[in-house]
Design a binder for these strands. Structure first.
Lengths: 231, 231
DNA sequence: ACCTGAACACCGTTCAAGT
DNA sequence: ACCTGAACACCGTTCAAGT
């Protein structure tokens, strides 16, 4: 006779907030931070939000869109100021891209999804705007600048995506080990070039390679004219 | 009384071949060609091989390894000759990388898995050997050549991975559409640089961009010295 | 050594039905 | 309009048991 359940159950937990895209994405980010992106599934997320998976489809088109939203949220952490290096556009650009890469390094799986589902959120637009502006200060022709932004972001994203040897990452670094082993154990007779370049092929601190990649791209972008348009 | 099933059932289908890594990978390639990589699952593959999924684990460590094996098989199709352009190392290198990129363009999903699980099969080694050899003809310092190969392959792979607007691909091009829409509808007041570079940011034939990317990288790689090693 | 059945622990997405 | 239960059609991987 005592069990009227309505008010009791309502007070049992800290008041389930109304569903909203905002709340859904925030919760997804939280799950990613604590358990990794592979746990950011519709079902797991629904469970966390105390509802069924079907309910999420009112706010999110599918899993890919969900991951894209999580990525954009994370891009809010990129430091766009360019502080850290010198005052020139080049140092500032380097600092912004380094910040972008480091943010993705924390979540290589997200970098991979960035390669699949191109982001289009406000934080992504802010990032593109900033890089474009800095690169334009190089004085390079407009098209080179426009195409160059793409190259810089693609390189940084792909570098992060590759860097899967990470704690929260289940698909960790044994593939890279396999590649290293394969390159090391190569027969000098059949693969002379590999043997000849061997230590360097595998060596090099990530930081050094990142810095060099940046210089390679900026030098190339500013100095290489776009080809004559094919038909 | 007539139904002795042993010999009959043995003749019912064209004699199930014994399981082997070779046979498994070949069948996987065939499924990918006809149904796309997303159908290359342990279960689907087992079904095709007329066995249970557990049996495959004798030959293949997991799904990622399976996809890596499929990728290496596909790399056998890359034309390493370098025919098509001129005779110089640069034209030949361009031809080899174009061939690599085009092979991956047929299967963008495979390109993505190449970014995650670094390949290490014999076809991959052959490809690296060839690119290394060609790039070494530039006369650039050893370390630049070694690191440069990585950049060239990474750029080609990432470019292919992005290019997901493809027939067999379920996760098709609506994300790119969303990005284009976002870039187009940007407010000139808040994102002046995007507005200023707008047509070029999105335009450009894939071929033109590929050619330009190659030139950017080769110019950058051959002209940019590696930084002093940090500690 | 190789192969298997069966189980465990998950997925994404849809849809008719409810409020 | 928003939310839900239930279902459909899948997954990867392990493990004890068999040959």
């Amino acid at each position: 006779m005592s069990a009227r359940k309505e008010p009791v159950s309502r007070r049992e937990r800290p008041a389930k907030p109304a569903l909203s895209r905002r709340w859904i994405v925030d919760t997804a980010v939280q799950i990613m931070r604590t358990e990794g992106l592979e746990k950011v599934t519709m079902r797991r997320l629904a469970q966390e939000l105390d509802t069924g998976p079907a309910s999420l489809y009112v706010y999110v088109a599918n899993t890919a869109a969900l991951h894209a939203a999580v990525l954009d949220a994370l891009l809010g952490e990129v430091d766009l100021s360019g502080r850290g290096g010198g005052d020139g556009w080049r140092d500032q650009l380097s600092a912004v891209l380094t910040s972008y890469t480091l943010v993705l390094f924390e979540h290589p799986q997200l970098a991979r999804s960035a390669l699949v589902a191109r982001p289009s959120g406000e934080n992504y637009l802010r990032l593109v705007e900033r890089i474009l502006d800095l690169l334009a200060h190089s004085g390079a022709p407009r098209t080179q600048v426009a195409w160059g932004v793409d190259k810089l972001l693609l390189d940084a994203t792909a570098t992060a995506a590759e860097q899967s040897t990470h704690e929260h990452d289940p698909t960790s670094g044994e593939d890279w080990d396999a590649t290293v082993r394969a390159l090391r154990s190569v027969d000098e007779a059949t693969h002379p070039a590999i043997a000849a370049h061997m230590p360097d092929l595998i060596d090099g601190a990530v930081r050094d390679r990142m810095r060099w990649s940046f210089d390679v791209l900026v030098n190339g972008i500013t100095q290489t004219p776009v080809p004559d348009r094919a038909d």
